[in-house]
């Protein structure tokens, strides 16, 4: 399946006008299914420079590594902070589960062991970034009702604009609006609306690159509109399909030095 999707992407590169016809054919749900099923490697490694910027422009930098691996339809991911020294060694492990919340663990060096954390508390911020634990999880299209609002050019890319309204009790947001690149089925922008219907956050992709044949967002911004706070992420290293060992995604690996 992954291989077929890979070929599919190659065809997209050869026929850039293909998206025009797709706009007429695809429904909002189909678009979001294509986004969810887009081939992004069987496993992946990212080294990311993260900057937290407050409303006064004060910036705090962090460097982290992320490993992901597909296990059938489900994915496991591992994240470790390398810098700065005060959060170095903080690690996060997440296992997707079918039809229920992810199983998540956090390792804090001061505690000396991994700790199970509550993934159902979706609205909590992940280590003081502008990402909540919900934002850290992949969201299956079945959890939302999708409506295609139309098309729009965003930063030079022709995009589908899709509104996704969560099914009851599955999200901290009342709705999300996605700008999806018609050629690559890559989300380039997301607007998040809180329970009162007010726009509360914007996620923007500022740069995409094709790495090992996979289109990758290498520079992104998540902006919290209420707090006037931003989390910038710059991917400085990407490796796909390196045959990442299963051991990376275990509790014992999380707890090792």
């Amino acid at each position: 399946m992954r291989g077929i999707i890979g070929v599919f992407f190659s065809l997209m590169m050869l026929f850039p006008l293909w998206g025009v016809s797709e706009e007429r054919i695809l429904s909002g749900r189909e678009i979001m299914e294509k986004v969810f099923n887009r081939y992004d490697g069987d496993d992946a490694y990212f080294k990311i420079e993260m900057a937290l910027v407050d409303k006064k422009g004060n910036t705090r930098s962090r460097i982290l590594e992320v490993y992901t691996k597909d296990y059938g339809e489900l994915m496991k991911s591992y994240l470790e902070f390398l810098k700065p020294p005060d959060i170095r060694g903080v690690k996060f492990l997440s296992w997707e589960n079918k039809d229920k919340d992810d199983t998540q663990y956090l390792y804090l060096p001061a505690l000396g062991r991994a700790r199970r954390i509550v993934s159902s508390q979706k609205n909590l911020r992940f280590v003081n970034t502008d990402f909540t634990y919900e934002d850290m999880q992949r969201r299956h299209p079945d959890k939302d009702t999708h409506t295609l609002l139309g098309g729009e050019i965003y930063q030079g890319y022709s995009c589908f604009v899709v509104e996704s309204i969560p099914k009851k009790g599955t999200s901290q947001y009342s709705k999300r609006i996605f700008w999806v690149d018609k050629e690559r089925f890559l989300v380039l922008k997301t607007e998040f609306y809180d329970k009162k219907g007010k726009k509360c956050k914007i996620f923007r992709v500022e740069k995409i690159e094709e790495i090992s044949g996979i289109w990758t967002a290498t520079r992104t911004v998540m902006e919290d509109l209420a707090r006037h706070h931003k989390t910038l992420m710059n991917v400085v290293e990407v490796k796909y399909n390196q045959g990442t060992e299963d051991e990376i995604f275990t509790l014992s690996n999380l707890e090792k030095d």
């Binding site: 700790r115 199970r116 954390i117 509550v118 993934s119 159902s120 508390q121």
Partner: peptide
Amino acid sequence: FETVAGPYGIR
């Protein structure tokens, strides 16, 4: 043992 129950961590 360790698990979660709703928004609570239990061990």
